[in-house]
């Protein structure tokens, strides 16, 4: 018996916008709260407010951009080894 099409959470108009709004709001809350947290890191930079936010963001952007460069070098056809 085929399963009929279903309406999911993100199919309802406005839900995706609400989800993203919640996501961005939580980012702002994190950035603000970080100023009021007592820190005793192993390295000096750990105590800089919002260090981890910057490090996480920069890491992921670098990761993706580096992966794009890597793809140019290593990408081959699916049957590369079978030929």
């Amino acid at each position: 018996m085929p399963v009929p099409d279903k309406k999911g959470f993100f199919d309802k108009p406005g839900n995706f916008r609400r989800f993203m709004a919640f996501f961005f709001a939580s980012l702002v809350v994190l950035l603000v709260v970080d100023f009021f947290i007592a820190k005793h890191g192993y390295f000096g930079w750990e105590d800089v407010p919002d260090f981890f936010a910057a490090y996480g963001f920069v890491s992921c952007v670098l990761l993706v951009l580096a992966a794009k460069v890597l793809r140019i070098i290593v990408k081959r056809r699916e049957d590369y080894y079978d030929r």
Binding site: L27, I37, F52, A53, S59
Partner: peptide, 22 residues
């Protein structure tokens, strides 16, 4: 600890932000 929870959340959530923007 507060620092660990917030630090880890920042690392992850801003990684997610990078994913969204990209």
């Amino acid at each position: 600890t507060g620092a660990h929870v917030i630090g880890q959340l920042e690392l992850l959530m801003f990684g997610a932000l990078a994913f969204c923007l990209l």
